[in-house]
Design a protein around this nucleic acid. Sequence first.
DNA 1: TCATTGATGTTCT
DNA 2: GAACATCAATGAC
Length: 208
Amino acid sequence: MMNIIDITNTNLSTEEVAKQLLGLKLISETPKGITSGWIVETEAYLGSIDRAAHTYKYRKTPRVKAMYDQAGTIYLYSMRGHILLNIVTKEVGNPEAVLIRGIQPDRGFELMKKRRGQKGYNLTNGPGKLSQAMGITMAEYGRSITKPPLYIDFSIQRKPKTILTTPRIGIPNKKEWTKAPLRFIVEGNPYVSGRNKTIDKTTYGWEL
DNA sequence: TCATTGATGTTCT
DNA sequence: GAACATCAATGAC
């Protein structure tokens, strides 16, 4: 039985937070409408010791300021014209976070299609894709993930049948951190990023 | 000031 | 499976 996480509890490891965010609902309220979706893919970034993290060796640049804030803070990162959504997991001054990489649409499917100009699984099966689908902008940088307009509903959670652990995506040349098992996915869910994946067409990987 | 480089995505073949 | 479109933070100079 998976317990619903308290995002402000900094005693949990970032890997544990990443796992426990699976099955929770991410919600975005904008003037154009509300979109939401179940989190199906996450990655952990372990701050000062993690070569692949922006805060490796406690690096402090203007961009990563929010990473040093309290657990539950939204850290947004703009890259190649896309925005990537992260949630800070540890106490002030300890820059670890979880990257949300995929959601299964729940509400606002038509708005997502309009914003993306795509359809099907391509709507939200990637960190940049889901940001575009949900209308996430840098305006939410540094805000809390517990309150609108961009927030997680911590009152209900779907249970994955199996959580699969894999290396993270898109981080070559980071020595042992390239292959570190820090990516967590709902096995069988089609909104997980990447091409070669197994799809459970009857349950999408959820318990009934 | 400027070249480099990605926690990406789309569009080809 | 591979090429490329794209852009701003970063760090070297």
